[in-house]
Nucleic acid binder design. Structure first.
Lengths: 124, 124
DNA sequence: GGCGTTGTCAACCCATTGGTTGAACAACCT
DNA sequence: AGGTTGTTCAACCAATGGGTTGACAACGCC
């Protein structure tokens, strides 16, 4: 249990049904039964999905009479976005650098290049 | 096999080891053995992880003699970012609207309501 | 040719997951 | 108190996932 938050969040969203629930919750809170409507699975299964989303911090449940309205928590999304953007930026930057190097190598300048900006010790 | 792309990507990144690989690949291409270095799992396990990343489109492998350098593909990240940002924005907007409604309800103004509490330029 | 290196494939193990059904709990309404 | 509605708990089952080991393909280097 209790893997790190990021793993939980990614894992939770790896399921299409759960992603769909999130999509619908983005439009407004809903109860378990309301959420269960469209899918042809038992209410218990939906309840389980919600537990996964809740454990990941993507969703919270309040109490309102005998109902438990489910509410989408937007904050956790930032965690993912930050992670993704970080490495995407790095990768793209590296790509740009590589591209520059390639362009330079194509130039028939007789200047000896020795830049080799690459990764020499990437794997420790 | 072959779940939708988004599921594959999220699922691939739900594993800390794989996320770590991506992080290291963002700094530069690497071979399977180089990648395997830090982890105390077999090379075969690493190879499996790479297959998952590759199937998800996060990574590509070229051929270079008997080595198979692994390269991070930045594009797929956009898919995730788009999905995430969409619902995050929706959720946040809804929250802002709700907030506005609540504030309005608190105000004891006997102004006739006029339906939808939509966006009336509540540039907060 | 033979040999070490690099990586993948195949079979297997065990823990986790998504689904099921049936029972239980919780809060309301008479 | 008894009934109804909404939700969760418990036990179970089949499928998946991450790990292992062992065999083997492809290639470069003596």
């Amino acid at each position: 249990m209790s893997a790190d938050r990021l793993s939980q969040v990614f894992s939770a969203l790896a399921d299409p049904t759960r992603r769909d629930m999130v999509a619908r919750l983005a439009a407004g809170d809903a109860t378990v039964n309301e959420l269960a409507g469209p899918y042809d699975v038992s209410v218990q299964a939906v309840s389980k999905h919600l537990k996964v989303l809740e454990d990941a911090g993507l969703v919270s449940r309040s109490r309102e009479a005998q109902r438990r309205p489910v509410h989408l928590e937007a904050e956790v999304f930032d965690l993912m976005t930050k992670w993704i953007e970080r490495y995407r930026r790095e990768a793209e930057e590296r790509y740009r650098r590589l591209d520059a190097v390639l362009r330079q190598m194509e130039q028939p300048t007789d200047q000896h290049d020795e830049g080799r900006p690459g990764q020499e010790g990437t794997a420790s």
